[in-house]
Amino acid sequence: MLDAAMAIVREEGADALSLVTLAAKAGVSRPVAYDHFSTRAGLLLALFQRLEDQYVQVLRNALGTSPHELGATADLMSKAYFNCLANLGPEAPAISAALKGSEEMAARQRAMLDEYIEIMCLALQPFSSLAEGDLRLTCVGLLGAAEAIAREQQDGRIAETNAIDVFSSLVAKSVGV
């Protein structure tokens, strides 16, 4: 059902997604969709979680191949972030926007950001002389910068390769010894 929901968002936008449209697209009865997700917000949260899980897995996989060098680690982090965005398309921002104002969404996003930040900190800590709290805050800022750069890239203002290069440089300069 999540594949069908993602197709609706991709083809018609997040506003067109409801449990009724999902049931029709997925070829299931309305009660099945309601039993599985309960609410539209529940469905959107499940989609958002799926996308975030993909982001995190791509990052973990990339870092698993990283040589022990800051520039290479920064490059892998940057490529993983922007390649994942390119592969997932515009659905993630649309789903996130549809959930704005939801307390549950805010809590879920916070937990996902914390996980992503933790992964970044663990990967960058060997290359940094920053105290643990300062490194974490630096990673928070870097992730915010990545999101801003991603918006520029998604709006067609910069090329993906430029986004990757700039973010990689920011990472290396921010935590380098």
Rank of each mutant, 00 (worst) to 15 (best):
G42Q: 03
S66M: 06
N83I: 08
M105I: 08
Y81C: 10
L143F: 15
A72K: 06
A123W: 15
L63K: 04
A72V: 08
E115R: 15
T73L: 01
R151P: 05
A62N: 03
D114L: 11
F48V: 04
C139T: 02
A111H: 12
A46L: 01
A159G: 13
R60G: 00
L113T: 14
Q154K: 05
G141K: 11
A150R: 00
C84R: 14
K79H: 10
Y34W: 09
G27W: 00
L85E: 15
A150W: 02
R60S: 05
R40W: 00
D35M: 12
S102E: 03
E69R: 10
A62H: 13
N83H: 15
P90A: 03
A41W: 00
A106S: 11
Q154E: 07
G133Y: 12
E152V: 07
L137S: 14
F127L: 06
G42V: 00
G42I: 05
A107T: 11
S96E: 12
L43R: 06
L130R: 03
S128L: 05
R157D: 11
A72W: 05
L113R: 13
N83Q: 13
L88P: 15
D35T: 13
F127K: 04
F82M: 02
A106C: 07
A33G: 02
Y116M: 14
V32K: 15
L143P: 00
D134T: 00
A33S: 03
E103M: 07
L45N: 02
A159D: 12
L47R: 04
Q54K: 12
F82Y: 14
I95D: 00
I117K: 05
G101I: 01
R108N: 11
A94C: 04
L51G: 12
G71T: 14
L130F: 07
S96G: 07
